[in-house]
Computed example of a mutant assay.
Amino acid sequence: MTAPVMIGQLARATATKVTTIRFYESIGLLPAPPRTDSGRRTYDRSDVERLHFIRNGRRLGFSIDELRSLIDLQENPVRDCAAASVIAARHLAEVEEKLSQLAALRDELKVFAHSCNRSTAAECKIIQGIGGMRAQAN
């Protein structure tokens, strides 16, 4: 086993803020670490690996609850990974929906951006278009 590391070392090793590490501990994504006699947290290799897993999962957009489920699967290696596939497929569907919404937003913004007639703000098609959106949203 490697020597334990302190929270600052863990933060540097994983490019994670100390406050984020503490947050992950407080919500149970990272286990509560043992402490030295002086009360300092100590971490080992498994904590570094777990934090990398969490950081990569967050980078991919997985929610905290999805990560909890994936960590549970990771900690029970004999379980069928079909549950992980379901989580990933559901997340992919959410990402694809967001991409579709962003594409529609991009298309609408293109219309606005190209509608400027270089007149006064009172006659601005962009401002009028955005104002008209409020009426549509209500």
Rank of each mutant, 00 (worst) to 15 (best):
D37Q: 10
S63H: 01
F23L: 15
V5Q: 12
E66C: 04
F112R: 03
S63I: 02
I71R: 00
S46W: 03
E97N: 12
S46G: 07
D107Q: 14
D44C: 08
R12Q: 15
R40K: 14
E96K: 10
L10M: 06
Q136S: 12
R40D: 06
R106P: 03
A113M: 09
E94H: 11
S85L: 14
E97W: 06
L99K: 11
A104D: 14
L92R: 15
D72P: 00
L30T: 06
M1Q: 11
I21W: 07
L30N: 05
A3P: 03
H91R: 04
P34H: 07
L51D: 06
D80E: 13
C116F: 02
D44I: 05
M133P: 00
S100W: 07
T20F: 06
L60K: 01
A121R: 08
G57Q: 01
T16C: 15
M6W: 05
A122V: 09
D47L: 04
R45Q: 15
A103R: 09
A89V: 09
I27E: 00
A103K: 14
G39W: 05
A88I: 09
A83M: 02
F62S: 02
L70Q: 07
H91L: 00
C81D: 05
A122T: 10
S100Y: 10
S46C: 03
A32R: 11
T36E: 08
L60P: 00
P4Q: 11
E49N: 07
Q136C: 04
T14C: 15
V5N: 05
I71C: 01
R58K: 15
H114T: 13
V18T: 11
E96W: 03
R106C: 04
L92K: 14
R58C: 02
T2D: 13
D72G: 14
A113I: 06
Y43L: 08
S115V: 07
N138P: 03
N138R: 13
I71H: 01
Q128R: 14
V111R: 14
T20D: 11
A122Y: 02
C116N: 08
L60G: 01
A89P: 01
S26A: 08
I126Y: 02
C124Q: 07
V5R: 10
P33I: 00
L67R: 01
A88C: 03
D65H: 13
T14D: 04
S46I: 06
N56V: 12
A83K: 08
A135W: 06
I64C: 02
A113L: 14
G8E: 12
A137Q: 12
T14L: 09
S119P: 00
V18N: 02
I7L: 01
S115A: 15
E49M: 10
K17C: 02
D47S: 14
L30Y: 00
R22Y: 08
I87F: 04
A3K: 08
A121H: 09
Q128E: 13
L109W: 08
Q74P: 01
G28Q: 03
I130T: 06
R59M: 05
A32T: 14
Y24V: 09
R118V: 03
L99D: 06
S69V: 05
T120F: 07
C81K: 09
R41F: 12
G131P: 00
M6G: 06
L10Q: 11
I27M: 01
L92E: 12
E94D: 10
D72A: 15
N138Y: 06
T2M: 12
T20H: 07
I7G: 03
D37L: 13
E66T: 02
P34Y: 03
R22D: 03
A32K: 12
H52C: 15
S46H: 11
M1K: 10
V86S: 11
V95D: 01
